[in-house]
Design a protein around this nucleic acid. Sequence first.
DNA 1: GTGGTCTAGACCACT
DNA 2: GTGGTCTAGACCACA
Lengths: 130, 130, 130, 130
Amino acid sequence: MFQIDLKSRKAIYEQVVDNFKELIIAGVLKPDEKVPSVRDMAKELTINPNTIQKAYRELENRGYFYSVSGLGSFVSVPAEAAGSSHRIKELKELFRSTVNELVFLGCSKEEILKLMEETGLSKGKVDEND
Amino acid sequence: MFQIDLKSRKAIYEQVVDNFKELIIAGVLKPDEKVPSVRDMAKELTINPNTIQKAYRELENRGYFYSVSGLGSFVSVPAEAAGSSHRIKELKELFRSTVNELVFLGCSKEEILKLMEETGLSKGKVDEND
Amino acid sequence: MFQIDLKSRKAIYEQVVDNFKELIIAGVLKPDEKVPSVRDMAKELTINPNTIQKAYRELENRGYFYSVSGLGSFVSVPAEAAGSSHRIKELKELFRSTVNELVFLGCSKEEILKLMEETGLSKGKVDEND
Amino acid sequence: MFQIDLKSRKAIYEQVVDNFKELIIAGVLKPDEKVPSVRDMAKELTINPNTIQKAYRELENRGYFYSVSGLGSFVSVPAEAAGSSHRIKELKELFRSTVNELVFLGCSKEEILKLMEETGLSKGKVDEND
DNA sequence: GTGGTCTAGACCACT
DNA sequence: GTGGTCTAGACCACA
């Protein structure tokens, strides 16, 4: 599904969180879709189940997962994302500082606008969902 | 000069680093300008001098500061910063994921383009650098 | 009859228990009324019959249901419920902490009194019971 | 500081969370006050530090604590409580069902109103804070 | 010293 | 089988 970098400064469970977020944001994982069980994920990534558990719990807190004991863990629907207004504020600030640093390091305006297009942003909202 | 938020999850030394970077990028601190001594900075922010020490060392490593024994620390000319191409790659990736998450959370295309303008990017300031 | 929220942190069988309790307390289900069979309930809610089984057993233990072999389960007359004094103690404690937290989170006195009225408490319905 | 019931159905870390919440709501713990370190708390309650850690993390997520690595954990200010509007909705629903069940079990109107007064609610907001 | 992460392995309740 | 809790003990980074 994805890879974990054990040597990274980022905590393993955070990497798992971020990877799942990416997959959900990219639409690879759909709402109410089942994700691998804690144990399966642990086996696949060869890391401790507790670490996966922690990641799943975190994803639940951030509104990306919901877990049903005995059934499994599932992708949540984005509308229910908790505290997203606060998160948006954070992201905007991050956006600002990222662009500023890019410019500072000599990245041209054109290059950044090109990045913008690559995100699919200029194509309008996703037309086909299925 | 700036404020530290103890309640933030970000480490204190990292906040110091980021704040200095912001000031340099924004042009508030000019190349070869002297920055406050470790002890003064620690007093002003009422945090441990070791923490400031670590921040300054980090800023040196990243090419934003240079220090002269017995004189203090100074703002560097980061165009000369080593490894900035690697940093640019990182920033582009960060840019991509930030925009994607913003869109996912319902932020409109217009809103993001507005953010873009607010960074001063659309004023063509970068042209001279290219 | 009612809905189960899989996304809730509450166990499914507990949701079933609570929903039945609500219906009985609200008077929707009358004493000695027959409730759906375990299998029917399971089909209607599309959940595992074992889960319904567990919920019904729990409702029996708490004095809300009684079951007759071969006939099914029926609504009990909970005034006869055993251990209700202990339950009342629990509920009072829960009441106290709930009100305290509401106040702490900025809920005004008026708002809470309004809630009180909405429960029908102020209509003196309880007088006949005393 | 408080006691833990190892035999309770409630998870230990949840008990810790609830106890701290009570203390903060009651005003025993003031904003920005330092709470015992994870290790000290673990020693005092003779439970595993990881369990305390989990409780503190939970309190942080719910906006009651903030932690500074290397410094300790502190009581947060209630205004910053995240997602409190959602929590208020939950509490109101809990209030409703609690009162309904109390009435159902034969608790008189007077008794419930007396409970209300005991919470200090009828005295208006706290006059003396110090 | 502090919080934070990770592992290994046991145990429990729910479906 | 699933998620969830807990322990014991090691290790790291920050202040």
